[in-house]
Design a protein around this nucleic acid. Structure first.
Lengths: 135, 135
DNA sequence: CTTCAAAACGTAATCATTCTCATTTACAAA
DNA sequence: TTTGTAAATGAGAATGATTACGTTTTGAAG
């Protein structure tokens, strides 16, 4: 997803445009990997002195809700990244730099038969390690 | 894993036997599902008045380290369960009661080719939903 | 240009978890 | 059985991430 698509989603749903919001989306658009609220705050602070934690968290939560960002939990911290807008897939995640690589096969395809009578809401498949650059 | 096996692991590694530790292992042995530190504390408090948070957390961490418990993170809280001692597998986890069902296929078998040059440390595959009893 | 709900601010609160340190306990060796 | 030592515990404060709240500011519709 690019910056413009993200802003369009906000507009469609009736949320306001602000410079901060554009900058947040721009940040994730450029980073293309999982980042924490703190990472984002560090990026925003030089441009918006006194920006509050609340603004960061509220926007992360909002962007996740409307589908601009996707999130996962690593080491007790929520991490966010720009939502990949093509077909369903999973990620390899580098423990050092947070960079991701898409995994195109989904294990759910193979196990439907094992879960008769169970209501399935969601699933998580992630692979952790170190990317070529971090080794 | 049963209670005796758990206690043996502690003994082998030179950790001391205490009644609390036996009770903690007994708890997880009976529960057979993911439980939080708070759940465990509620169970222990009637038997050990004044038991501290720290004892709970320290023992959970220790038991995880020596392989008596396995853990996962759900909704920002660490959850623990008795380690299944047979072959590698994954879990369906009920969002309501925490009960688990083993999934015997592992997606890692299918994707080795996709991750050449990546060092793989670990992976997580979990399915969330509601079990037959909770629907 | 006005108006008003939404967004952002500043700060305090909350929640899970970990740390510090003094005290107690388990248990192996004498 | 006594003793020494490392491990375990208790009590409470500290930490770190996240959320809540009352007030102020601001985007954008009319």
């Amino acid at each position: 997803m690019n910056v413009q698509e993200g802003l369009n989603i906000l507009k469609e749903k009736g949320y306001k445009y602000t410079g901060k919001r554009e900058d947040i989306i721009t940040y994730f658009s450029k980073e293309d990997r999982y980042r924490t609220a703190k990472d984002l705050l560090s990026y925003m602070e030089p441009n918006y002195e006194g920006i509050s934690f609340d603004t960061i968290y509220r926007n992360l939560h909002l962007f996740h809700q409307v589908g601009i960002l996707e999130s996962t939990e690593l080491n007790g911290e929520k991490h966010f990244r720009m939502k990949c807008d093509h077909h369903h897939h999973h990620h390899f995640i580098c423990n050092d730099c947070g960079i991701t690589k898409e995994i195109h096969s989904c294990p759910m395809d193979d196990i439907k038969g094992e879960l008769n009578n169970f209501a399935i809401d969601d699933h998580k498949f992630e692979i952790y390690g170190r990317c070529p650059a971090c080794q």
